[in-house]
Design a protein around this nucleic acid. Sequence first.
DNA 1: CGCTTTATCCTCGATGATCGAGCATAAAGA
DNA 2: TCTTTATGCTCGATCATCGAGGATAAAGCG
Lengths: 397, 397
Amino acid sequence: MARPRDARWAGALGILGEVRRTPGVTRAEAARRLGLGSGSATEITARLRGLDLLDEIPAPVVGRGRPTTRLRPSPRGPLVAVVEVRYEDWRCAISEIDGRPVTVAARRHGRGGGEQIVPPIAEVLSGLRSRYGRRLRAVSVAVAGAVRHGRLVQAAPLEWGPTDLSGMVPDDALPLLIGNDATLAGLAEARGGAGVRAGTVLHLTVEVGLGGVLVVGGVPVVGAGGAGGEYGHMPFGDRSVRCLCGARGCWDNDVDGRALARHLGAPPPEDPRAFAYEVLQRAAAANAAGQGEGNAEADAVRRVARALASGIAGLVNAHDPDVVTLGGVAPLIRAAAEEEFDAAYLDGLMAFRRADPIPLRAVALGDEGALIGAAAAGLDLVLSESGLNDWAADLEA
Amino acid sequence: MARPRDARWAGALGILGEVRRTPGVTRAEAARRLGLGSGSATEITARLRGLDLLDEIPAPVVGRGRPTTRLRPSPRGPLVAVVEVRYEDWRCAISEIDGRPVTVAARRHGRGGGEQIVPPIAEVLSGLRSRYGRRLRAVSVAVAGAVRHGRLVQAAPLEWGPTDLSGMVPDDALPLLIGNDATLAGLAEARGGAGVRAGTVLHLTVEVGLGGVLVVGGVPVVGAGGAGGEYGHMPFGDRSVRCLCGARGCWDNDVDGRALARHLGAPPPEDPRAFAYEVLQRAAAANAAGQGEGNAEADAVRRVARALASGIAGLVNAHDPDVVTLGGVAPLIRAAAEEEFDAAYLDGLMAFRRADPIPLRAVALGDEGALIGAAAAGLDLVLSESGLNDWAADLEA
DNA sequence: CGCTTTATCCTCGATGATCGAGCATAAAGA
DNA sequence: TCTTTATGCTCGATCATCGAGGATAAAGCG
């Protein structure tokens, strides 16, 4: 062979990237964005068609000029299976290379050990495997817990210990990716949600506890073992409080439904997320009615809002992102105590940042973020150089 | 032209990178590491010699076989001027493409406004410019303050406000890079110091306040405006304390000489770094003599050690680095209260991390880190594709 | 209905970095 | 001096990309 090792897929990766970024781009537009000549575009798309990676369909004509085609995932192209494991349920989805997962199964699960969810998910994945065969290239899991070196090491709110999820995959040759749900949601928001076109995105989600991630240039900063982004376990809170995670003073404990319950003198709620929704709704209503002052729930919300906002300010000081995206109940907390929230945010910023504070935005992908992010992570693998080499080799065989 | 735009310098960048990583590598070794064939190595080194980027000198013969050559910066090659501005002094250095700065001037400065240092530095740089002409390709400045969008926006401990340093460069065409000193020291440690070969390095320095940076794959994570790494301004401390930076509860105030003085009931020290050195030395001596218990200074040091270590634990939770490198007085704080420090570190970690905690290491480059890092940042620019294109164009003209 | 305009696509020869085999070179060891 | 070991150089081949020129397809216009 006599090609620069990295050049074999160079152009192809560019085109595939455009298709992922903008599903349904026209071929002409993709070539323009990449600065490709028309000759290269022809060559590359022809190759990708031949590899069953892309398909071209006539594009609706807009003005004059020769009509172009839209680039779409090939109906015989690679697929990624995606799983999301949340506090009370899980779902499986399948995604083509445009990164839009389609749910194929969903189920609630009890509060037993983590291993109980493995068999039913394995069954679904096994079904996908026999249905799609070699088209299925990877399994990507988003899970509500701390993940390190591809293993779920801790899921305190779920009350799961270290859990082995590797039994999910029907076939040892099928790559299994496991990521934290908030991390993957942040990835999705940064690439195609509220943080799109920003170089550095800080994503934070409040569900049960707080998770998040810093995404730089579309790549999540997850550290050596992939466990980065556990911002909920920074000691922004009261050091005398021991967190379920084992550390002290974790921010986690000051910003969610459990914190609201504590401030209200209520027992720890069974479902902190639902509890938070209810309290936030009532607090927002009270505020809207001008009865927020002295209202216990509104007070609790304000307290949580201050804890959340001042921590965010600290993270902004430390990371200098272009934008902060807020998911889960965080946008609701802000909305239900906007004044206190924004004041605490500004107050926590270094002085030079106050003139033009980094914007805080609610997520754009809603509850689909983690699933979309998991698909993106899976596709990063499948559409990498080595992934494409494997795909091409499989086609030949 | 008919070359893949990125391929023109591809091989050359690899070789230059090896020379930077390992000054004095042999040509054969560099080719081996890059997986280059001997033909490519010949072609590339010949081109780099022709461009006055590299020089080859005979290598001392070790065993049998045809002797190879060492790759070195060309004596007519590009240079980067480096400036470090610290609390009480500044220095200028010059670096060839191996990234080893050689100091050419140093001076103490008073505590006036920041602008006072610009003229003398400008004079030194102007001298370098006339001496080296076009060989001087960039000026890279490490400064003890918050830097954003290439401007020094805040230097609270120096008591400088926003300061325009652009007057330093003798020629508007000469690129000026400005970076935070702790960020650049972290870059240097990650690439060639205590964090070498680690994928993700968290670097933290305690001087007056605390600075640092996360370095991922040799690239510092500095956010949108380059102001990332201001870990000293995360609210790990007492929220009732207002920091000089404008925020509240900053970690900055709990970990340095000012904190030691506060705990000792002493007035804020004129030179917090020197004060810290003295207290730490006495506390270490007291501990060594078995008189650490009840000793006021040793108690103050323990308190600072706990504040430092628990904050580090929080950052480790959030970032999951391979290694934490400690600079400035941080290693001394740890040494002077090792038990408390390590206990607080472990106590602040999430439970799953305790079995195999991320190692904390003292810096390897001592006080040269910021200078070396600034040289590295400058060379990243000079030895980029566009920088090399400019250099080649200048040679032709 | 045919011509013009606009936009895109395809063909084809050129380019240039890399590759790898084969040969040349230089030192150490026998 | 011959062999072994390691490296450097030459040269033809490869291949993704480039860009010019021509082909193609639709809309607009008379």
